[in-house]
């Protein structure tokens, strides 16, 4: 009995507040915009049958016809993918160096990685506005050392978005890779070298495959949220950067077109299903391996 209650309570909560809302989103994506409260029609007040009969895929047709949405999805995928690769390139050497650092330093290094993770996401993105703007610290610094003579335009470009994503998601990449590398038995590398591998070859043949789960987990932890990112493109990307999270937010709050915003969300969710399932399987495998 107790076991049933233990399972039922969190289960019911997640069903009600995580899964069922998606059904609601789907239903509204099939509705039409209306000047009413709530701003869509039909609603359940019209009766179930009337409501069902008036649902259609008009909004999806609209999305497919307006190339703004296509471009937003594609550019989100591109930005999320490139930023994930960049984060991996920055994060892996850091995680590797942390795992190889003297044992006494490791807790401190780990804390230094985790600390930004606990500080406000919004504030960390905001910090870059002052750095990347035309008269910002980066341009001032580069002008001062004489590398450039004209300020670079970085803020309000995709570059700024890459920097923002790498910066804010870096801890998510470092931590799983570090924990995989930390578990790695140092004598494996020594064994590989003893058997005639060069250092680089041993790294490539032993270290990388054994940290694979960390790399996968870290990449999904960056890629999936980055795909729907809203704050970073809004603050750093300006009007020139098209990302689907921003489009959705504006469709909802500025245009108040809830049905179209819902349709945008449904398609984003469909794009996310594959990486989500892969991520969940990776997590479950690790949990079970740990047990």
């Amino acid at each position: 009995m107790r076991r049933a209650a233990l399972i039922a309570i969190p289960y019911a909560w997640l069903l009600a507040l995580f899964l069922i809302p998606f059904a609601v989103v789907f239903k509204i994506s099939l509705s039409d915009i209306a000047l009413a409260i709530p701003p869509y029609t039909p609603t359940a007040k019209d009766g179930i049958w009337t409501m069902l009969s008036q649902l259609d895929f008009e909004n999806y047709v609209f999305l497919s016809e307006d190339d703004l949405y296509w471009k937003a999805y594609l550019s989100s995928l591109q930005i999320a993918f490139i930023s994930t690769v960049l984060t991996l390139m920055v994060g892996y050497p850091m995680a590797y160096a942390m795992a190889r650092a003297p044992e006494a330093w490791r807790p401190t290094l780990l804390m230094l990685v985790i600390l930004p993770f606990w500080t406000s996401f919004l504030i960390r993105v905001y910090a870059w506005v002052g750095i990347l703007s035309n008269e910002g610290f980066l341009n001032q610094f580069l002008l001062w050392i004489g590398v450039i003579h004209e300020p670079l335009t970085i803020l309000n470009t995709p570059t700024a978005v890459y920097i923002g994503i790498v910066y804010t998601y870096l801890p998510f990449m470092i931590l799983p890779i570090y924990s995989a590398l930390d578990r790695l038995d140092g004598s494996l590398i020594e064994a590989a070298e003893d058997l005639g591998c060069s250092r680089l070859k041993a790294f490539w043949l032993i270290t990388v495959p054994l940290s694979k789960n960390g790399i996968i987990a870290g990449s999904f932890l960056v890629f999936i949220p980055a795909l729907g990112e809203f704050v970073i493109p809004s603050l750093l990307g300006g009007s020139g950067t098209l990302m689907i999270g921003k489009v959705l937010f504006e469709e909802f709050f500025s245009n108040r077109d809830w049905p179209v915003a819902s349709a945008v969300a449904v398609i984003l969710l469909l794009i996310l299903v594959v990486p989500l399932v892969l991520f969940q399987q990776n997590q479950q495998r690790q949990t079970e391996a740990g047990a």
């Binding site: 899964l19 999270g245 819902s262 969940q280």
Partner: peptide, 26 residues
């Protein structure tokens, strides 16, 4: 169940926010 535990970790906030809002209004 385990899917519903892991998915919100990475779910873009715009989707979670929108879907909950629509539920509350509904």
């Amino acid at each position: 169940f385990s899917g519903m535990i892991y998915a919100p970790l990475v779910m873009p906030e715009v989707i979670t926010g929108l879907s909950l809002l629509l539920l509350f209004i509904g």
